[in-house]
């Protein structure tokens, strides 16, 4: 299993809309609180290289993946579903299947609202590590923490309860921190959010 510090990148594949933002932040916070690096398609800009090429590079660099496939509703405006999450999950599983030694060591956690709901819309992923968060952030924190803890080379990690408590403290501080640096707490870019969480953890956790 990947143990080197530089191989602690976790690819987060999830919805990026406002409704999912609290869950997204909880997952990013948990990943960083456990000593891993959160990465996702939001750090991919559309300039130059095609978006898919950059996402493939990102997937190739991440030995861990967290894929939330819970967003199955139709978009309220377009009345169409979003296929990006199952698509990127497929790319990740494909990299693991067809890649070299390092890619074959990839591990992934698939999250949904209910544990066996995927059988009705994505049954081909049967046999993967699929967990339910029930739309509950505290459950998601525990699932992500347990997934990262399961690595045989992983040392001690704080419990899900400790991470949840730290997340609550962070979310209490975040608006004031953002006000101090004249940023909108609800509109941080992903790289900036990662920095705010990282430095807060260093100072406060």
């Amino acid at each position: 299993m990947p143990a080197a510090l530089g191989e602690r990148a976790v690819f987060i594949n999830c919805p990026f809309d406002a409704a999912y933002q609290p869950m997204f932040e909880a997952i990013v916070f948990t990943v960083q609180r456990c000593g891993f690096v959160a990465r996702c398609a939001l750090e991919v800009s559309d300039g130059g290289e095609t978006r898919i090429a950059r996402i493939l590079t990102l997937i190739g660099e991440c030995p861990y993946g967290i894929h939330d496939i819970s967003r199955t509703e139709l978009d309220a405006t377009t009345n169409l579903p979003r296929f990006n999450m199952p698509f990127e999950l497929g790319l990740y599983l494909g990299a693991r299947h067809f890649g070299g030694r390092r890619q074959r060591a990839k591990r992934c956690l698939i999250l949904d609202r209910e544990r066996y709901r995927y059988q009705t819309f994505l049954s081909d992923i049967a046999g993967q590590d699929i967990e339910a968060h029930g739309g509950d952030r505290e459950h998601a924190v525990a699932r992500v923490r347990n997934f990262l803890r399961a690595d045989p080379d992983q040392g001690t990690l704080p419990s899900g309860r400790v991470i949840w408590r730290d997340l609550a403290r962070f979310e209490r501080d975040k608006p004031a921190i953002c006000a101090e640096i004249e940023l909108d707490a609800e509109d941080l870019s992903f790289p900036d959010l990662r920095h705010v969480i990282g430095l807060w953890l260093e100072e406060a956790a």
């Binding site: 510090l5 456990c34 690096v37 704080p158 400790v162 790289p191 900036d192 990282g198 953890l201 956790a205």
Partner: peptide, 19 residues
């Protein structure tokens, strides 16, 4: 970046924040 009080190393990708 540093280490938390319970010994977890906090890691970030290289690069500076934008804002």
């Amino acid at each position: 970046l540093g280490t938390t009080s319970d010994g977890v190393r906090i890691i970030l990708p290289k690069g500076k924040p934008k804002a």
